[in-house]
Amino acid sequence: MDVIKIARRAYAISWLSWLELSNWTNPLIFTIYVLIRPLFTLLLYAYIYVAFAISSGYSNPASAFYMVTGISFYNYIGSGIYGVAWVIHEEREHYRLLKYNYLAVPDLMFYLTSRGLIHYLIGLALSLVTLPIGLWLVSYDLSSLQVNLPLILINLILGYLWCTSLGIMVSAISLFSAEWGPLIAESTGGLLFLVGSVLFPAQSLPWWMQPLVNAIPMREWMELTRFALNPQYPIRADFLLQMEVIKTSLYLLCSFVFFKIMDKLVRMKGYLEATTEH
């Protein structure tokens, strides 16, 4: 395996991804554009919490920490999944270049993985910017944070792997639909928000949603992130980490097999270059 060649390809694809994201404006406006939505989302939830605390005369720092960390770090996963799952639609429908990229790279999965990289980096930057702002807004005692950097890094890598695998599976489905691609990509982000213990514990969801909660490693990822920021956070970190590793491995395997099958099927059906022509 030629690692340098792979790295060059990944760099070129990420560079393209960056250009597609940012080509329309200058860096300052782009930064404002990227920051504005996550910041306003954070402000909205933070002020709901503050208003509730003022009106009830009761504040709960643990809940505030839960909410702010959830909203901040969801940026990483939300941006990443969208960055991967949106590619098929964008390349096929908008740029009409899917077939040329398909022919040029040894594997379309590698292309999707590399296209997502820059989205994860932007998502991570957003997480790191919004976290201190959010904690400050809810008056959380920052001295209680004890960042476990190795765990954060391991968790970020695991998050990248399972989330990209999920994105690849979603992309494999959107290969079959020119019309539903954007909906599928956006809904997956919404699903992760819902079942991933972002704003509330996933266990509080109805029983019929629990299989879905357990099937997606988002909950483990989110809880481990909180634990990596504050070791007092009450979870069984070892167990959750094991579960995340097992689920990530399964996701990697499933996405590989699933994408290969769908890749063959889509060429059988003749949908690889299908566009809506609107």
């Binding site: 030629d2 060649k5 060059r8 390809r9 760099y11 070129a12 694809i13 560079w15 393209l16 250009l19 597609e20 080509n23 740029y95 009409r96 270049l97 077939k99 040329y100 990229n101 022919l103 040029a104 790279v105």
Partner: peptide, 29 residues
């Protein structure tokens, strides 16, 4: 192999001719 189709644009409108060609050289390794 490679494929060239008439009436299509096999590159990104947001990039120059040079950038597009360089991008594809990298994809081809």
């Amino acid at each position: 192999i490679n494929v060239v189709s008439g009436g299509e644009r096999s590159g990104y409108g947001i990039m120059t001719v040079k950038e597009n060609l360089w991008y594809f050289t990298q994809l081809y390794g």
